[in-house]
Write a protein that binds this DNA or RNA. Structure first.
Lengths: 143, 143
DNA sequence: CACCTTTATCCACAATTCCCCACTACAATT
DNA sequence: AATTGTAGTGGGGAATTGTGGATAAAGGTG
């Protein structure tokens, strides 16, 4: 399970460190792809397999399903973790998520997300202010 | 079951002591995350596991579900209890709860809450004075 | 085939984090 | 009242980690 929020920077060689706590769970081979809300998703090879199959089963007849499949699958790229626990972020993904140097790596249970720092702050602020809704949902979950 | 109110201070290394009575119930591994009303929630690994799984099952395709999952999961952090019974409070959680040095640790049945001391006093004052009204509403809930 | 650009692997340093220990204060017990 | 034990707080040293650079391999191009 991936949880937590970590600050990192992408260097001029497009290398990005993965939090040590995530490394052993990820394994050596991972997959990075376009995510929702202008962030990147990073999956372990295993989780990626599960997700890719789900996507492939979506109805080909629906235009938005095709679009989603193309974004997630065509946008994907293998990301090998090097000896220092870093991955390479391809240009087209950096651009997609409009990343500057400073990024935030967050864990969301079965996936890791990578955000441009300022984008993450904006998103967080907006979401946290909806804290009343969160209370309602907690109620539904019986927590 | 966690009950009671305890005063502690977060030192300059962001360490926070957990009340001895809570330690054995918590176990060595706990999870701290963003709570409601600008406090932090601290769960035992077991309680957290149940909660996290429920959250993770929410649909990826819904924007508000994603937001909720991000606040709760990305907002969380593993909190290992060290030999002295302390945990580490990450910067982003300290900021979220606007914590200074002095904090209050509160037991609320199945979770522990951590409050900035002054925030706790404010909240308490407000709530205690409204306790009559609240009692009226509790009646509706069958308490 | 030679050259240049890009990619990958390895190494180094600085900063941070983690783990263990020490000291003081307070409480309980004898 | 003294002593023993427990708890809160702070600090030091070792190990880990973040980040940048250097060198070696690979690949594409003229």
């Amino acid at each position: 399970m991936f949880i937590g929020e970590y600050k990192y920077s992408i260097d001029e060689k497009k290398r990005l460190a993965i939090p040590p706590k995530f490394r052993q769970v990820l394994g050596k081979k991972a997959v990075i792809t376009k995510g929702l809300d202008q962030c990147l998703f990073l999956y372990s090879a295993k989780e990626w397999g599960v997700l890719a199959e789900k996507i492939s089963k979506m109805p080909l007849t629906q235009a938005d399903a095709r679009g989603f499949a193309r974004v997630m699958l065509a946008g994907a790229m293998e990301a090998n973790i090097d000896n220092m626990g870093r991955i390479l972020v391809p240009d087209y993904l950096k651009n997609y998520a409009s990343m500057e140097k400073k990024v935030v790596v967050v864990g969301v249970y079965n996936r890791i997300e990578v955000w441009d720092e300022s984008k993450w702050q904006q998103y967080n602020k907006k979401t946290e202010s909806a804290v009343g809704d969160i209370a309602e949902k907690l109620k539904e979950l019986g927590v």
